[in-house]
Design a protein around this nucleic acid. Structure first.
Lengths: 149, 149
DNA sequence: GAAAAGCCTAGAAAATTACTTGGGATTTGT
DNA sequence: ACAAATCCCAAGTAATTTTCTAGGCTTTTC
């Protein structure tokens, strides 16, 4: 029951974009270096997010990536579902490409996966990039407070 | 973000034991056939559940597996955590063998994984094998109702 | 027109999951 | 005492998925 690095990298990258929101495009390279993500792999993830309409890109020199909307409008649920495909813990409850189960027995356990999926989505959809940025700021100031005493 | 077949097989197997609770041991073979699970693989899973104290076994002819306690006492959280190792969506929030992250940045996303983990555990710990058995009965009678009309 | 970017596809490498094999060890019934 | 039924265990293989790399193409700026 693990999220893959796609979620982790995707969150880090979009957080990076959120922190630089309104300041022009950021290149894949700078995000990758800043966040410690393999450049070509990140490229694929950002491409996926772009196709989903969560970020937008500017091609050519001086180009790069930006959030498609304000950090307050983008939930991490959108980001993670886009990158992972779905948060369904089992394919039989995957909304996109559901996999029908043959045994009646499965239907009871299926209820479990359904409830889990809902609960995961609820958590993820309740957090925006803005929320995370605020948390990051708090943490940062808490840290420097500790540091200078 | 998928659960592996371990969870699925483990739930099906323990549901099978729960439905037969109090009626003596069930063999691996009969569970495997009944639930459509590869026999030798199921053996490994039941072994893991036994070591965790969730089921108990009787060796030798006429032996088999039984639940270690009543279906009302066993939550599916215990079963799934035992088989999957943990429901932590990322290793950095795995209680058993936590993986320390180096970057301060990660700590914000870490909060996300932490909340998810709690939410997943909450759902799984709120459902007992007994609950699932009741649901199964309900479904079964609903189905036969449909069938005979 | 050269450099700096994003765009795209295919595939290699690594990791994990799912399953298989085969040889024990225990218990029961004859 | 022995055969059959059953659990126990460890190692190995196959399949799948994830992660990353390579390389060529397109667009934009200077």
């Amino acid at each position: 029951m693990k999220f893959t690095t796609k979620s982790e990298y995707g969150l880090k990258a979009t957080m990076d974009l959120a922190e630089n929101f309104g300041r022009g495009p950021r290149t894949i390279r700078s995000i990758a270096e800043n966040q410690g993500i393999p450049e070509n792999y990140l490229e694929q993830l950002l491409s996926t997010l772009r196709r989903a309409g969560l970020v937008k890109s500017i091609r050519g020199a001086q180009g790069g990536y930006m959030l498609a909307g304000s950090p307050k409008e983008i939930t991490i649920g959108e980001i993670i579902r886009t990158l992972e495909g779905s948060v369904a813990p089992k394919n039989c409850v995957d909304d996109e490409n559901p996999e029908v189960c043959e045994r009646a027995e499965s239907c009871v356990t299926r209820m479990v996966w359904e409830r889990l999926k809902d609960s995961i989505n609820e958590v993820l959809d309740s957090i925006t990039l803005y929320d995370l940025c605020e948390e990051a700021k708090k943490m940062c100031s808490a840290n420097s407070f500790m540091y200078y005493i």
